[in-house]
């Protein structure tokens, strides 16, 4: 009866309002370094089988098809769009952009997973001990750690991740370490932790670490930061579509409500 319609429309409203949430978050992060937009995917729910196909009626005819009523929609997943954001030149020596699909590995709080996080936000700083740390959160350290000596005057990061410094009083550069790039079989299966940090999950598969440049993980570009890959036009179009679809579902609710009212008032004429 009309209750099914009411519920189906309610699932539509719920799923669509979640998409408004996700689009709003995408737009809010349109200027966040290395932010990856999420896309909401919908799927239809189970079907109520009012009549199975192949039943026989009183005259002996076999019905060729059954009667199925869908119970609405739901969100199957929110898919991270890992498309590369544009790389913007910052002229800051410790800004490192990844041109490729890999991630930097950083040490995060031990209480989260195995204490390892992954990020594409290469906005690095040097902390008081000389360690290369991320510029957000609690200053997550790079894995493997890279230490910049205190008397360094010039830091150079090559496309293959080699970090070399020029120490005061010296004329040749010293290599202090090499950045590593981590890749996943299914990076869309990573867990979003916020603060540009992703963590490994069952779905993402195990991380594989390579030196930048080979293995397809990408090159490290010094003095570049990756911009957010949010396309405002796409998001706004999605917002408009969502709003209209939301209104359509509210029409279903109104109609189902009127039907129930009509049925409810049958006895009072």
């Amino acid at each position: 009866m009309a209750i099914t319609a009411l519920n189906a429309a309610a699932t539509g409203l719920k799923a669509l309002s979640t998409r408004i949430d996700v689009v709003a978050n995408n737009l809010a992060n349109a200027e966040t370094t290395a932010f990856k937009r999420s896309r909401v995917n919908f799927e239809d729910l189970m079907y109520l089988q009012l009549r199975q196909p192949g039943t026989t009626n009183a005259a002996g005819d076999v019905s060729p098809a059954g009667i199925f009523v869908g119970l609405g929609t739901r969100i199957s997943n929110t898919q991270i769009d890992l498309e590369q954001g544009s790389l913007e030149r910052t002229d800051r020596p410790l800004d490192i952009g990844i041109s490729g699909s890999g991630f930097f590995r950083v040490k995060i709080m031990d209480s989260i997973g195995d204490g390892t996080g992954y990020t594409r936000n290469g906005n690095f700083f040097v902390n008081k001990d000389g360690d290369l740390v991320l510029g957000m959160g609690d200053g997550y350290k790079m894995i493997p750690p890279i230490n910049i000596p205190s008397n360094s005057t010039d830091i150079n990061i090559a496309e293959d991740g080699t970090v070399s410094v020029l120490r005061s009083g010296q004329t040749t550069k010293t290599t202090v370490g090499q950045l590593r790039i981590t890749q996943f079989v299914n990076p869309q299966g990573l867990k979003l932790l916020g603060g540009s940090i992703y963590t490994e999950t069952e779905a993402s598969g195990a991380p594989t670490e390579t030196a930048p440049g080979d293995g397809g993980g990408g090159k490290t570009l010094q003095a570049f930061l990756e911009a957010s890959n949010v396309d405002p036009v796409k998001e706004l179009v999605s917002l408009i579509k969502t709003q209209r679809a939301f209104e359509l579902n509210s029409q279903s609710i109104q109609t189902a409500d009127q039907a129930l009212q009509t049925i409810g008032n049958l006895r009072r004429g």
Binding site: M1, T4, A5, A8, T11, S252
Partner: peptide, 10 residues
């Protein structure tokens, strides 16, 4: 109406 609601929800 049930069927139409499901169509619109999807």
């Amino acid at each position: 109406q049930d069927v139409i609601s499901n169509n619109l929800a999807n």
